[in-house]
């Protein structure tokens, strides 16, 4: 069972702060423990920054999930930027085409239960992450 809760723009660094706060609010509502909460908010922060810095801005969609007695939260980061040319390279620790540390994508993947990446050069990138209680 899913229901789409909310869509937020990711167009500025203030939007990343707002997105983090919304993720925190929904993670608490879903009943995540503190470590899970912290990991998920941090992953969201990394991906929101990627959407802004590499995708040229985009959107974050929230979905609340229920599976049996487990609750989950799904976040989808979407941009219409240049896309990722070499996914394998982009998913390597320490690799970056920007000025960061190259930990965003790989780090975020390690912090969440489910990670899914779709990208097409010239069309954009869509990354979804899920965390369960």
């Amino acid at each position: 069972m899913t229901n789409v809760a909310l869509v937020l723009p990711i167009q500025s660094s203030e939007d990343i702060v707002i997105a983090r706060q919304k993720v925190r609010e929904l993670a608490i509502k879903a009943g995540f423990n503190v470590v899970n909460q912290t990991k998920f908010i941090t992953a969201a922060s990394e991906l929101a920054r990627n959407t802004l810095d590499y995708g040229g801005g985009g959107y974050l969609t929230f979905e609340e999930l229920i599976n049996g007695n487990k609750k989950g939260l799904k976040l989808v980061f979407e941009d219409q930027g240049p896309g990722i040319d070499n996914i394998q390279l982009a998913m390597t620790d320490g690799y970056t085409t920007g000025k960061g540390l190259g930990l965003g994508l790989t780090g975020a993947k390690r912090l969440v239960n489910e990670f899914d990446l779709w990208t097409e050069v010239g069309k954009g990138t869509r990354i979804s992450i899920i965390q369960w209680t």
Binding site: K39, G107, L111
Partner: peptide, 14 residues
């Protein structure tokens, strides 16, 4: 630093 932050940072690779 909060313990949950420390755990997250190490897993992030920082």
């Amino acid at each position: 630093m909060r313990p949950a932050v420390a755990i997250t940072l190490v897993e992030l690779g920082l």
